Simulated assay, not measured.
Amino acid sequence: MGRLPLTALEGFLLAARLGNLSRAATQLNLTVSALSHQMRGLEERLGQRLLVRGSRGVSLTAEGERLLEGIALPFAAIERALRQCQVPSDDILTLSLMPSMASSWLLPRLPDFLAAHPELQINLQSNTTLVNFDQEPVDVAIRFGAGQWPGLTAEHLFDEWLTPVASPALIAKLGRTRLRDLSGCPLLGDPGGRWTAWFARFGGTPPTRFVAQFSDSEPLHRAAVEGLGIALGRMTMARPLVDTDRLRLLGKQRLRAEFSHYLVYPPRSEKRQSVRLFRDWLLLQAREYAVTVEPRKAGGRKP
């Protein structure tokens, strides 16, 4: 068969993992056209169709599944060997986090960190999938979860708080609305069905139907900004919109979300100076932010 098509196999492996040619091409510093050409060449070489292109990305054929199963472990072993031989540059910090967390919380604060440490370069990878520290050259991650990831250090940053928010135009249209009467208002269904917990905590009856349902928090908040309905907003995402008066809070009540935000990193990152600097700065930012969003009882004590 001649020389092994290692470049094409690497592209196939990444496309299969991500389920998206565009994202795979970006990580490989290729155009989508170039990566598609590699995939077609690989399929022609093997005489098998490996990928099925669709409107939402790519999926694997049965032959593609078999190829992925055969090459995933060898490529992972090669990546581990290369990382062990490579001395990481301590002036580069690679960070993984969700796009919503990046745009609404971290990016507005990041200039202060870079101004204090101009010698550092931040490589920010924003995606919705959990990074695999064993397979990817990522130093730290900001994750939303229960705080338990085997083999990793997880440091609590802050809790997530939920509260009803709506656009100024919708509030003006609805008039004065008591929180107990929200079930009679146009509500937006949130990921996880948190409205049920809200009504159980603060009273009222959950609605029998929502104006619209959302599986992701980012379009949920965008829909609220457009006046589609009242959202049970996540403060990390709603706060910047409230500060710019694109959304308004309907009251002071807050519901603690099931999960919290954590800084997560593997043992290999602990001794890196860039990681220590970022960790110390991030924990300070988290403490300052938590004070502004966490509800307090009379006397200044948290509930």
Rank of each mutant, 00 (worst) to 15 (best):
A286K: 04
A290E: 15
L241T: 13
K252V: 11
A238S: 15
T244A: 14
Y265H: 11
L241D: 13
D245T: 10
L283D: 08
R272M: 14
E258C: 06
M235N: 15
M235F: 10
R279K: 12
R287N: 11
K271P: 00
V242M: 14
Y262K: 01
Q273W: 00
M237F: 14
R254T: 09
R272K: 07
R248G: 08
S269E: 04
L241Q: 13
A238L: 12
A238H: 11
L241M: 14
E270R: 13
V242P: 09
L249Q: 04
Q273H: 05
D280R: 03
K271T: 11
R279L: 07
V264W: 00
A286D: 07
R268K: 04
E288Y: 04
S260F: 02
A290D: 15
S269V: 08
M235H: 15
S269W: 07
K252N: 09
Q273A: 10
A290M: 10
L241N: 12
A238M: 13
Q285V: 12
V264C: 09
L263H: 01
S260D: 12
E288N: 14
M237G: 12
F278K: 00
Y289A: 13
Q273P: 01
Y262F: 14
A238G: 12
D280W: 01
R256G: 10
A290V: 08
V242K: 04
S269N: 03
R272I: 06
A290N: 11
W281V: 08
S260E: 04
M237S: 13
P267E: 08
H261K: 00
A238K: 05
D280E: 12
R246W: 08
V275T: 12
V264S: 01
S260Q: 05
F278V: 04
Y262T: 04
F278G: 02
L282F: 05
L277K: 03
Y289G: 10
E258M: 10
R268N: 06
R276S: 05
K252L: 11
R234Y: 14
R248P: 03
V242D: 09
Y262A: 05
A286E: 06
L250Y: 01
S269A: 15
E270L: 08
R279Y: 07
Y265P: 04
V291A: 15
A257Q: 03
L255I: 06
V275N: 04
A238F: 13
Y265T: 05
R234A: 15
R234L: 15
L263S: 03
R268H: 05
K252D: 10
Y262D: 07
D243S: 14
A257H: 11
